[in-house]
Each structure stands twice: as C-alpha cells, then as structure tokens.
Amino acid sequence: MANSATTSRLSQTMANLLTATRPGQTVWKRLKKNSGFLFVAPAVLIFLVFGLYTIIYSFVLSFFRWKGSSIFSLFPPVCEAPGCAFWGLQNYKDFLYEDKGVAKLFWMAMENNLVVALVVPAATVLISLLIAIALNRAGRAVPLFRTIMMLPMVTSGIAVYFAWSSIYLSDGPLNAMLNAAGLGFLSAPHGWLGTANLALPALMVVMIWSSVPLAVILYMAGLQTIDQELYEAATIDGANSWHMLWYITWPLLRPVTFIILIFAINNAFQGFDLPLLMTKGGPANHTQVVGLRIFSFGFGDDLQLGIASAMGWVLFLLVFVLSLINLRLFRPATEETRE
C-alpha cells in the first residue's frame, strides 16, 4: 500500500522531470527545480565517503574466508594468500546447513531471536504507551518523575548488567520478593539467569526495560500533537476512555509506533551486548542470539570475518523484510492524506 504510494510518487517526479526537459526551459530552471537536493547533499556526501565503501566491503568479504591478518582490501583489490581465500558461497552454506555444529547453533540463535523480536517490541510499545499517556495526563507536575524514568538511558552499560544480574541471583531481590509474597513456587532456586527456560525471558525483561524510556519520549511527543478537540467531540458522542484510546489515540500515534517498532526490531536482531555480558549465550545456549554468533565470528573465539559478514547480510535481509511488513502495518495514511 505504502509501497505503491512511494512508487507512484516516484514515477510522478520522473514524469515531472521529463516534462521539464522540453526545449525552452533552461538548465538553470531544471537545477532550481531539483535544488531541494542541496539540503540532502551533506548527508549523501558523508555517506559516500564513509559509508559506501564499508558496506560494499562487508558484502564482498562474505564470499571470502579470512581471519584478519593478511591484507584484504577492495581498493586495490587484494586477497593475500594463504591467510585469505576466495570461498564462494561456502560461508553461507556452512552456517545455514552444511557445517552441522555451526548451523545448529545458528538456527537455535535464530529461533531465540524471533521470540525476542516478537515479544520485546510488542511489550515495549504497550508499556511505553501506557506510561506516556499516564505521564502526559499527570502533566508538568512531575518533571522529577520524567527525569528518573529516563535514568536507564544514562546508567552505564556495565552497571546495568551487574545490577540486573544481582537482581536475578538465587538470593537476589526478585526471589526474595516472591518468597515474601508467598509465591515461593515461582522463584528460581538456581537463579533466573541460570535456569534453562527462565534465562531468555529474564533477558527480555532487561531489553524491554532499556528500550522503554526512548519510546516514552517519542510517544509523549506524539501525544502533544493530538488535537484535544477530538477527545471533546468523542466525549459528547458518549465514548469512554478505552474507546478514545482505541479509536483516537492509537491510530493517531501510528507513525510513532512505527518508529518505535523499527527501533525495537532492529535492536532485537542486532543487539547482543546483554547476552554477551549477562549470560554468554548460556545456559546451554538458551540465550544464543544471532548477534552473538556474529560477534563470535567477528571479534570473538571463532574469528572468521567472512562468516561474520555473511551472517550479517542474512540478518540484514531478514530485518529488512520485517521492516517492510512493519511499514505496511504501521506507516499511516497521513502521507497520502497530505498530498
């Protein structure tokens, strides 16, 4: 839907350009017509210089076997044997199916990743929307609350990991609270991060925790843009709070939801620092994620940058497709209505 809108606009601008080329119009005028590009030019330039090469490089590298000691470069094209070898599609084949051990781990990680990518974005949206609405109504009376709520954004990474790890310990606050509430049967006697089926959910809670503040900021900004008259009109029509939430707030916040979802999905697939620091992918690979596998091949024990690149590109394809689906679901009609 949104795609077709994009393409139709694209063809329209192309048509504009074609009509612009008819004789009589000067080059100056044509340049002027496209002068909006000047605003974008610095961004494009900086990408051409510092982004393009790295992307092409990592794509080409995914067809080589290389551990980073001999020289591998595109300009000039060098792949210095024996430390570097052209490997064709072997990297992709290896981790997708051929090398049993590596492939098994990859698919296990992918499975965990899909769970994470489903649960974390959904929970982030739900929780942060509710908090934003509550905060928005509470108004400016609680700026302190806002500041505190954003502390997760500034707390240093390593402190976050250790703090949460200590919460999850067998004698940590979480188990203590459950026991005190008479819910001892729910507690994890071997620690939350050390129990096979609890480790991944425990990690997801931390992921949600760290992604909520930014989502709240975005939702609050979004809520400010909603016209209060809409609510007044709805009240006159006899709508209750949930109706207004469902029929006014939620649809009008769709562009914000879209942003948050892209952010969250991307993080869910590319983030790996949490499992790296808190569980190392364990216990028994229950918190393996694809990002962690890539990290292991890119910087870690398995060092083979060709496979790291290849996995990276498979992940790219997946996230790209998911983002397109997200685009279809949440990119709102606002753009079309604007035209």
Binding site: I55, Y57, F72, S73, I262, G298
Partner: peptide, 12 residues
C-alpha cells in the same frame, strides 16, 4: 541503512 549490519564495517 538502519538495518545494515554494523558489525563488520570496522575493518574497511
């Protein structure tokens, strides 16, 4: 570009 993997761009 948002979803391009950033992990292996260090070397280039």
């Amino acid at each position: 570009l948002i979803v391009v993997p950033t992990i292996v761009v260090l070397v280039p």
